[in-house]
């Protein structure tokens, strides 16, 4: 689907902005909003690029830089932290051979941190493309990553 088709699905009003951003992000394999897209959105909605950019950079769900096919978000808030027999972030960094904020060489994963994702009762937890994975263990993470790799292959 073209960006313009996405835009046309929404009323040309400021209130559509976040939904449009999220939909474009979902639509693109590299999950980011480009400068051209910011300009197109701002023109369609009749708002300034500064406004689109401000909203876009406010939410950690969204990105102005190309990302991996799958976005892994690790909760960095207290319950996950204290429930943590092991360090989810470090484990992921090791398994993926990269640090938070980076994208794996094969373009498959981007690793990010996020504020609480509401899974405190089943901590530690992470999101992959907004799908929650809870009660994480080292093995479980290994299996989850493998399943994403398989689907892509």
């Amino acid at each position: 689907m073209q960006i313009i088709d996405v835009l046309k699905k929404y009323p040309a009003s400021q209130t559509s902005l976040l939904e449009i951003l999220l939909e474009i992000d979902r639509l693109k394999d590299n999950h980011y909003i480009s400068k051209e897209e910011v300009h197109m959105i701002s023109e369609y909605l009749g708002v300034r690029t500064s406004h689109v950019y401000s909203v876009l950079t406010f939410y950690t769900l969204l990105s102005t830089e190309p990302r991996g096919k799958h976005i892994i978000q690790v909760c960095k808030d207290i319950p996950c932290y204290v429930n943590d027999a092991f360090d989810v972030r470090k484990t992921l960094e090791k398994m993926l051979n990269m640090s938070v904020g980076q994208t794996s060489r094969d373009g498959l994963f981007t690793l990010e941190e996020t504020a609480c994702i509401g899974c405190c009762d089943e901590a530690p937890a992470m999101l992959i493309d907004l799908e929650p994975y809870t009660n994480l263990t080292r093995d479980k993470i290994e299996r989850i990553l493998a399943s994403y790799r398989e689907v892509t292959l």
């Binding site: 910011v38 300034r48 500064s50 401000s54 950079t57 102005t64």
Partner: peptide
């Protein structure tokens, strides 16, 4: 005019034009 806005959030928040571009590109 709405050339200037806040960008990013928390301690990373900055103020400026979109994409932190120079004023004469805006």
């Amino acid at each position: 005019m709405h050339v200037l806005e806040t960008m990013h959030r928390g301690h990373e928040m900055t103020v400026g034009p979109a994409f932190d571009e120079p004023l004469n590109d805006q």
